[in-house]
């Protein structure tokens, strides 16, 4: 038996994912939110909420912001440079995205990290988490697509008269940024609280900025009681999912090894039922998945769930890993009884 021999694969599979992710997220957060100060410039097509409004601190820029900006052109312009630039941006976004797939959400996104921090605080205060009922969970799935369509359509309708409708007011030029809690929360980490405001200059601005303030309030309380509260509604997740199939990082499931015990579902911050109940699909990166790999860490079956990068398994569920993570691999001293 090779039980006690050291192997890298075994060490990885036995890792404390919670701790690994905690530090990975901190590093990513620092790079994305403060990277600009050390000259980091990852471009403006990042598939994560690297907020433009963060000013000089940001180590890159969020593509959803860029996308809304790109679309605010007269349609004629799309025949020329603007069209090319749009396609190149979209292509570049996809290339960035393919590297990590939805892992951008679970490991990099600063807004996601913030929510995880709030969850940690809640856990420490021993306040129970909230859950959506399965029915509601199904209903809110479509919200992110509606937001995505709106954020694509509104900028186009500012620059053009679509179907003979009058052009929209300019206040809607970055409609999603107006209501995105990242706009308020991410600059706050570089000491800029000036994104908390209500704009009275026009009716549209008034409505959009007030909506933004309401949403940031909901975000703070919501993600305190519900894990990854905002991610259910994130149009970035919707946009990413469109490109998710050819991505390099994957979450694979071997349904024949699954006992449907539901441990993965329990661990899932996004309450994805398929992860436990789907025993036929191989690729389990669903629309709401953040590829946080908590399900892999919670799975007690050898090789049932795995994180796969370009065909190579990088982290897979093992019985031993499960036991180590649940601290069931040995009897700890100082028991209560």
């Amino acid at each position: 038996m090779t039980k006690n021999k050291f192997s890298l694969r075994r060490a990885v599979n036995n890792m404390n994912l919670v701790r690994f992710r905690f530090w990975f997220q901190i590093v990513a957060f620092v790079l994305v939110v403060y990277g600009g100060y050390i000259g980091l410039d990852l471009g403006d097509k990042l598939p994560t909420f690297a907020c433009v409004f963060n000013g000089e601190g940001t180590g890159g820029k969020c593509y959803v912001g860029e996308l809304q900006h790109d679309l605010k052109h007269p349609l004629e312009g799309f025949v020329g440079f603007a069209g090319y630039a749009f396609l190149i941006s979209l292509g570049m976004f996809a290339v960035w995205f393919w590297a990590l797939n939805k892992g951008w959400c679970g490991f990099v996104c600063p807004l996601g990290t913030m929510q995880d921090w709030l969850t940690m605080v809640r856990e420490k205060t021993k306040i129970r988490y909230s859950e959506y009922s399965w029915a509601n969970r199904g209903k809110i799935k479509s919200i992110k697509y509606i937001l995505l369509i709106l954020l694509l359509l509104l900028p186009v309708m500012i620059a053009n008269s679509v179907f003979g409708l009058p052009k929209l007011p300019n206040g809607l030029s970055m409609p999603f940024c107006d209501i995105c809690p990242g706009r308020m929360m991410i600059p706050a980490f570089t000491g800029h609280f000036n994104q908390f405001y209500i704009d009275f200059s026009s009716k549209t601005d008034l409505v959009m900025t007030t909506l933004g303030m309401i949403i940031v309030g909901l975000f703070l309380v919501g993600s305190f009681v519900k894990k990854r509260f905002f991610c259910y509604f994130c149009p970035m997740a919707a946009l990413q999912y469109i490109f998710s199939k050819p991505a390099l990082l994957k979450l694979y499931k071997d349904g024949s090894k699954c006992t449907k015990c539901g441990d993965c579902y329990r661990a899932c911050d996004m309450d994805i039922l398929e992860i436990a109940d789907d025993v036929t699909s191989k690729n389990l990166v669903t629309e709401d998945c953040t590829l946080c790999l908590k399900c892999v860490a919670a799975c007690p079956e050898n090789g049932c769930l795995e994180a796969n990068f370009m065909g190579a398994t990088i982290f897979e569920s093992t019985k031993e890993g499960f036991l180590v993570r649940m601290a069931m691999d040995q009897i700890k001293e100082n028991h209560a009884h």
Binding site: D199, T210, M213, L218
Partner: peptide, 14 residues
């Protein structure tokens, strides 16, 4: 624009 109102709205919602 009003920052005070912005904060007030967010805190009120919370």
């Amino acid at each position: 624009e009003s920052q005070v109102l912005g904060f007030a709205t967010a805190i009120g919602v919370m």
